[in-house]
């Protein structure tokens, strides 16, 4: 299954996800099936591409976007099973669509080659963990926005929503840290040291710090620290995360980084 298949399978996923998101907002149960089907289609394409390329499709930005779409909608489905937030399901589906659409509208050169430094058993877990954490942490930022609105509009925070945000941050942090750890262990094997302040590493650390700060801020009572301030941390963390993932290549500090592609 080569990239040209994406011209057909991509739109199918997008339509299923969009319809599903719409129905989710209407609280229809059928939303689940549509979104799950869209996710399945995207998974089939990923597997097909993997077999075709004879390497994990995780090298180019376009390839990582495939995974991001897939993990986002999967994470949305799993979180929905647990938390029953239909806005969450709608949000993750729409975001998955956006990344699938970027791949449809802006195809990039899709090379089969994988440079030797990327040929490692850590490659797949490293990228997978990061994509999973990005998907999960994006949900925490949206949850924070809704909680901020609760505080503004209703004057009162929703306790269950706090539970959701806290849990999601914990899960996302877990994946983020596993991504960092697999990356560090891999760096030791490829370049001789597990940490070398490469700009992408530095930004990954900043992102990690932001979500750790949220986790530790939440240990204090509302009398000691303003809830608004605390709830602003996940959205800021999401912005930092986007810089880490996409923005680093454009920063002056990135000249000579091993991560720019």
């Amino acid at each position: 299954m080569s990239w040209s298949w994406h011209d057909y399978l991509g739109p199918i996923s997008v339509i299923l996800w969009l319809l599903g998101a719409y129905l989710a907002l209407k609280n229809r149960k059928s939303a689940l099936y549509l979104i799950a089907s869209g996710t399945l289609v995207s998974l089939i394409f990923i597997i097909g591409l993997w077999l075709r390329l004879e390497r994990p499709p995780m090298r180019t930005m376009g390839e990582t976007r495939l995974w991001y779409s897939f993990f986002l909608s999967t994470a949305g489905l799993m979180a929905f099973r647990h938390w029953k937030y239909s806005w969450l399901l709608a949000f993750t589906s729409v975001l998955a669509c956006i990344f699938a659409l970027i791949n449809l509208l802006k195809p990039e050169i899709h090379s089969r080659s994988l440079m030797p430094a990327l040929q490692s058993i850590y490659f797949v877990p490293h990228v997978t963990m990061y994509m999973l954490s990005y998907a999960v942490l994006a949900a925490s930022a949206v949850g924070s926005f809704i909680q901020l609105r609760n505080i503004k509009v209703k004057g009162k925070a929703d306790k269950a929503l706090y539970d959701f945000i806290d849990n999601v941050v914990c899960v996302g942090l877990g994946f983020l840290m596993l991504g960092l750890i697999t990356g560090a262990v891999w760096a030791k094997e490829a370049w001789g040291h597990y940490w070398s302040w490469d700009p992408k590493e530095t930004w990954a650390l900043i992102t990690l710090a932001a979500f750790l700060i949220y986790l530790h801020l939440r240990l204090s009572s509302v009398r000691d620290v303003s809830p608004t301030l605390v709830l602003l941390v996940p959205p800021i963390g999401l912005i930092l995360l986007m810089v880490t993932w996409i923005g680093v290549s454009y920063l002056p500090s990135a000249a000579g980084s091993v991560h720019v592609y």
Binding site: C170, V171, G174, M177
Partner: peptide, 8 residues
């Protein structure tokens, strides 16, 4: 990290 993911 795995513990955080499993236990939340």
């Amino acid at each position: 990290s795995a513990g955080l993911i499993i236990k939340g």
